Simulated assay, not measured.
Amino acid sequence: MNIKDHLADYRVHLTLERNLSVHTVRNYLSDLKPFTEFLSNESINSIDEINRIVIRAYVSWLMSGRKTKPTTKSSKVGHERTSINRLMVALRSFFRYLTKEGRIAPNSLWKKGSRQSRTLIPKTERKLPRTLDQVEVSALLQSVKIRKPSATDLNSAIQYRDLAILELLYATGLRISELCSLKIEDLKNKHRTLRVIGKGAKQRDVIMGEPGRQALEVYLKESRPLLASVSKIKALFLNKFGYQLSKRSIQSMVRKYGLSTNNSRVHPHMLRHSFATHLLDGGADLRVVQELLGHSSPTTTQIYTHVSLSQSRKIYEKAHPRAST
């Protein structure tokens, strides 16, 4: 079998056996494209030819030989170290699959828990996620100008929808993919909860505050009926044509309102970061925040404790009389 055959089988494995979403499968396979490009450049056709020397050469090529975004003006040579880490994670997963299926001999380089493959990956500084403070969040939410829609006023209907989305992103910490996939039946507005399907098809309930509940209630009563050109569509959030709102549309919408508050770098995931950080600032338990975010490991959630500490330090240095002496 050649590399393409192994990758085709790997796609089936990710989709059917691991039950990953279409988006996740696409990302896994996309992160393997540089590796197949490298193998083609080196005329390596068999999986059996790949060893530690080849992998080391691959990492070196990623760092200083491969052109990124070759068709754009921002093209450059070499990936960022964070990108290389992500590509190597995808490669490890692929080779562990090949080992498990008996297609290659066991190799400590790919063994789970082994540090051998990690020594090939350049170390990176872990950047703290960017967040909005509470004043900035309030300004973002207030930037949506609401007026009661008439039977034909789609612009006002869209503004009601936008406010509900912004309130929900901040109130629940949802990923943008989770928000897009919400259906009417997932909403339990009376109890201020949502049923969400997260990464790995894991189901969880998330809680929203009263402002989020009210914004959703108004959207469902005043806005969604105007947008729903297809009466049987189940998606919670709809575009102006009456179909499910896309991730790209939500990203553009959040960016638009961010620009209106002179904060040009706002994106949906920043509201997720802000949700987690503000909970921890308010004294929430780390395990509770982990559950609300849908993280499988508390290690992933711990990054927000560093953000919270960073915010605490700023407040301390501003407020304490002897902080700067």
Rank of each mutant, 00 (worst) to 15 (best):
E42I: 04
N45P: 00
K232S: 15
G65H: 01
A235I: 09
A90M: 04
F241N: 11
L187S: 12
Y257K: 06
F35C: 08
E125C: 05
N45W: 06
I250F: 03
I315K: 14
Y28E: 04
P149F: 01
A164Y: 08
S231G: 09
H273A: 12
I315D: 08
R118E: 15
S324W: 13
F94D: 02
Q134P: 03
K73E: 13
Q244N: 09
D31S: 13
H295T: 08
K100H: 10
I176Y: 05
H13L: 07
H273Y: 12
R86M: 11
T124F: 03
N239I: 12
E49N: 11
L109C: 09
L7G: 07
F237N: 00
M253R: 05
Y28R: 06
M208K: 00
I44F: 08
L154Q: 05
S64C: 01
K73T: 12
P129L: 03
L163W: 04
Y219N: 10
R175T: 05
S177A: 13
H278W: 02
R66Q: 11
T72G: 00
T261D: 02
D205G: 02
L169W: 04
L187R: 04
L227D: 12
K190Y: 13
E317D: 04
N107R: 02
I50D: 03
S274L: 07
Y28L: 06
L16Q: 12
T119H: 13
V77C: 03
R195Y: 11
K112Y: 13
G258I: 11
V54I: 13
L154P: 00
E125K: 15
Y10K: 07
A171M: 00
K234W: 00
H278N: 04
V218R: 15
Y316L: 10
L168W: 02
R18H: 10
F38D: 01
S150F: 07
T68L: 10
I315V: 14
Q311R: 15
V218M: 14
E136C: 14
L132A: 11
S296L: 02
L179Q: 05
N51R: 06
F275E: 01
M63N: 05
S177T: 15
I146E: 00
Y28P: 04
D205Q: 14
Q302S: 14
L280E: 11
R81Q: 06
R103P: 06
L87H: 04
T24F: 04
S40Y: 07
R322N: 02
Q142P: 00
T119P: 07
V196D: 05
S246F: 09
C180R: 12
Y243K: 15
A105E: 13
S312K: 15
P129F: 06
P268M: 09
A105C: 03
R103I: 14
H306T: 06
L141D: 07
V59L: 00
S143P: 01
N45A: 11
I84H: 03
N41W: 00
L216G: 10
F38N: 02
K240C: 10
S229Y: 11
